[in-house]
Design a protein around this nucleic acid. Sequence first.
DNA 1: ACTCGATAGTTGGTATTACGAACCATCTCA
DNA 2: TGAGATGGTTCGTAATACCAACTATCGAGT
Lengths: 149, 149
Amino acid sequence: MSVKPHTTRAAETQPGGEAIVDALAQCAFVVTGALTRVGAEHDLSLTQLRVLGILRDRTLKMSELADFLGLERSTMSGLVERAERRGLLQRARNPVDSRAIDVSMTAAGLVLAEGVRKDLEHALAPVTSRLNADERRTVARLLQRMLGR
Amino acid sequence: MSVKPHTTRAAETQPGGEAIVDALAQCAFVVTGALTRVGAEHDLSLTQLRVLGILRDRTLKMSELADFLGLERSTMSGLVERAERRGLLQRARNPVDSRAIDVSMTAAGLVLAEGVRKDLEHALAPVTSRLNADERRTVARLLQRMLGR
DNA sequence: ACTCGATAGTTGGTATTACGAACCATCTCA
DNA sequence: TGAGATGGTTCGTAATACCAACTATCGAGT
């Protein structure tokens, strides 16, 4: 969390560790603000957007989804139920563990997600344009590696 | 939004523009997930956390706060009201424009925010440790510049 | 094969979050 | 001195989120 630590203690656990946490948090706030606005235009809450964003390139079980989002399983039920009723997601019983339920995107969901992605690109343009192309590539590469591929 | 664009169109508006948007979005999702979990330990919702994070180093009017968060003004009222009742924020009539209300952190709010920051640092350690110190500094520096200052 | 504890997901009840519309107060400026 | 714009709040409603309780299935161990 936080932005600029006016109360920074001199020594820190990791070298360069405190600055990146602040940068990541502030970055998350800005991107999340943009996502909230863009999502609203598509009648999607921030949380629905997070679900779509995470499921975009994978299929997850309900509980894995909850872990990813940092939410309770019970919260997922209603969340997925509404998205399913809207035709964005689909549920399927897991063939290996029949207690589990696999959640994945529908074609309609993918189309919507792509639309949001494009809008987000515009919404973030004023921010991303503060870096030149080289710097943008560097940030993208490092972030991707940090996030694991 | 999105993660890995399997449907990437070859030509894009900005060179290196599509990759950074995906990286930023995925990054926001991961950080937000961590924030949600960490916030829960302090009885703070993600939105409350966003408020604290934004106000940490500045004072904003209600409407500016709403713009920042991508939320309606009416939503802010309840949000700030609860945080104020909890002693984390304080409201003061703006001296220049007496319609407006300035919202700022209390000492207790700053303490809580610092606690969250520290917890977040731990929560993100598995992620940030995938980069070495140099790379972490580079990311921090570029992100900070991108976000203005 | 059978029981027991753990795990996966849902349901029900309650508080928070979020929107839009209606409203009051203040500001701007013609 | 209006008239319209802006800043916030309130109200009613839906979505989001938690916890506790419940059902169903899995996995060990015996």
